[in-house]
Write a protein that binds this DNA or RNA. Structure first.
Lengths: 216, 216
DNA sequence: AATGACACGTGAGAC
DNA sequence: TGTCTCACGTGTCAT
């Protein structure tokens, strides 16, 4: 609400001098003692200068008041963070698929299947082929790596399959490049189901490959 | 010059109540009249809350003091502006020429440290911690996973270390998120060097962690 | 003991 | 007119 938009710099100086003189007179009259008077004065000036510096770093200034300066700074920081986030997202998207620059900028919302088709072509062009690697690395632990097309819902499908097969995710990394997605994960068979020896590696591999390859 | 790093919230409240009571007594005694006392009180509280809000928006906080909060905010805004500038520059470069691999690589080297500092904070805030996992998955094969800060040249360093240790990369995936980088790779000892049994897993793990953690 | 940071109440200028 | 913001000097904690 109504705060004053005053020209602070000049006003402040004049006002300060004014008050300062009065107080000095008072000091003479009553012989006041102020141990940390000067220190406090410096402290105030420091904070004031910092606030002015902050103000100079913020483009949009609604009010010259202290609280407003800080408030605008908060707002500005939020905007900057959003911008950084958007830019990094865009950059990552562009690194993944060097094509379709126009579409990326406009349709944030509706990501069409066209993308996956294009990327699938890209992927095959680069000689990346789908496959599944599966290694036993412990009594009940396995390490697996799946390379396949990047398509919507592929990760959900992966999690569903893992759950269906009774695998528990220990850790996982996921990387995409040129229309391909690579899932790297350590998993272990949920206790109480069965031991690791009852898993046929080749059969599991084929099953995984088939499921991940299937369309819906 | 190290100012006081006091726990502000609780201290402030208790101190305020203390002083407030004394003053109230004084008011009763001398029947002081303060026209804008309550208003001023609100104003102070407003500024104080704004400063706290500002503090919560800045990841790096050196001191709890008012001036420091503003100072850190200024610093943080500067960093964000730099990041935005760099990102937009990169984006423009990529839009102009999709395949300028040379520039991208040099860019990687010169990338300012500011970004990594911010991301490191982000990473720690999310509870991601550096670690190295190493599994033997074959006679000469190993699977390893490294989680560390994302910083310029980290991947080159990784490749150098692998080469130095006599490891040959079979396959590798790399993922980054929130200031962290995760490298997942299958490696094997180069033939003619020695067999896999001569590798001390714990020792190798520690060495890798130390090297990836070191700065340059 | 001395310094630094803070909240407080107050008078004054601007709207 | 009253209301808002500010700088000021002070007492009081904590280091």
């Amino acid at each position: 609400m109504g705060g004053g938009n005053r020209f602070q710099e000049p006003v402040r100086i004049s006002r300060r001098r004014q008050v300062r003189k009065e107080k000095e007179e008072d000091e003479v009259n009553e012989s006041f003692k102020s141990p940390n008077l000067e220190a406090e004065r410096r402290r105030r000036e420091k904070l004031h200068s910092r606030l002015m510096a902050l103000r100079s770093h913020v483009p949009i200034v609604t009010n010259m008041t202290k609280a407003s300066i800080v408030e605008d700074a908060i707002c500005y920081i939020g905007e900057l963070q959003k911008i950084v986030q958007n830019l990094t997202e865009k950059l990552h998207e562009m690194e993944e698929g060097p094509l379709e620059i126009d579409e990326q900028q406009t349709d944030h919302i509706i990501k069409p299947e066209v993308e996956t088709i294009v990327l699938k072509e890209e992927m095959k062009k680069l000689g990346i082929e789908e496959n599944v690697q599966l290694c036993k690395i412990g009594e009940r632990k396995f390490w697996l790596k799946i390379t396949t097309e990047k398509k919507p819902g592929i990760f959900t499908k992966f999690m569903d399959v893992m759950s269906f097969m009774g695998f528990e995710i220990i850790d996982i990394t996921l990387a995409t490049s040129n229309g391909a997605i690579i899932i790297c994960s350590s998993v272990q068979i949920i206790q109480g189901l069965c031991d690791g020896d009852s898993v046929d590696l080749q059969q599991t591999k084929d099953f995984l490959l088939e499921v991940m390859r299937s369309n819906p």
